[in-house]
């Protein structure tokens, strides 16, 4: 199996925020923490386009490189995960990430989940799959249940794709051929260099 990837098709994204609330729903992410967001460019003008952004699970993840305590690891599927027990909340990863993915919950209501929080590609963390502990620290582990990230699975227009990188690329390519143009697989050059986006 090739590595897992996200792809957001900006021609399709209508900025409905389903990906954002699906994520909140699935992982009970509290107010103020956003593992996924939708960014709009040229807001209100011709050329307005939106992209759903979260951790892209980069093949050569900058967050991993800068982490002083090495709390990150990459799963066999290429998902970039981290260990909240090791994280010291220093914020280096946040500065290194080109997608602004790492989140730092305010002290208080999310303290129990601890430290940095980010998209897990619905793959939980280093705890027993779908145990209470894993859910509390990292959220649901859909991959272990044979399901893909809910944000993509619930996307209103199938703009956001998530899964095996080769399959994602195929679906996107078919679409581009169908409509005769594409505005590029957003973020792929940065996240997966050499993937031929």
């Amino acid at each position: 199996m090739a590595r897992m990837k996200f792809l957001c098709d900006a021609e399709r994204c209508i900025e409905c925020n389903a990906c954002v609330t699906a994520c909140k729903n699935e992982h009970e992410v509290p107010w103020g923490v956003n593992r996924r967001r939708v960014v709009t460019i040229n807001d209100g003008k011709p050329g307005e386009r939106s992209i759903s952004v979260a951790c892209m699970h980069c093949s050569d993840a900058p967050c991993m490189a800068v982490c002083p305590v090495d709390c990150f690891y990459q799963s066999a599927e290429g998902v970039v995960l981290h260990n909240k027990d090791l994280c010291i909340g220093c914020g280096y990863c946040f500065y290194a990430c080109p997608f602004g993915a790492p989140q730092f919950p305010q002290v208080g209501n999310f303290g129990s989940r601890g430290k940095m929080d980010k998209c897990t590609f619905c793959a939980g963390g280093p705890e027993e799959a779908n145990s209470d502990t894993e859910f509390k620290k990292y959220g649901r582990n859909r991959l272990a249940e044979g399901k893909l990230p809910l944000c993509a699975e619930m996307c209103a227009t199938k703009a956001l794709l998530a899964g095996d990188g080769d399959q994602v690329a195929n679906i996107y390519r078919e679409r581009v051929v169908g409509r005769g143009f594409g505005s590029g697989a957003w973020g792929w050059g940065k996240a997966y260099p050499g993937s031929g986006s």
Binding site: A10, W31, G32, V33, N34, R37, V39, T40, I41, N42, D43, G47, R49, I51, V53, C97, P98, F99, G100, P105, Q106, N109, S183, G184, W186, G187, W188, G189, K190
Partner: peptide, 28 residues
């Protein structure tokens, strides 16, 4: 909220910088 890095990531899409409405800033 995320300054030049996100803008540069977005350039593959737009060839330009983002203006308003990027990441929301939240205090919670």
């Amino acid at each position: 909220a995320f300054g030049p890095r996100l803008s540069s990531a977005l350039t593959d899409l737009t060839g330009g910088a983002i203006d308003r409405r990027t990441f929301l800033r939240r205090s919670g």
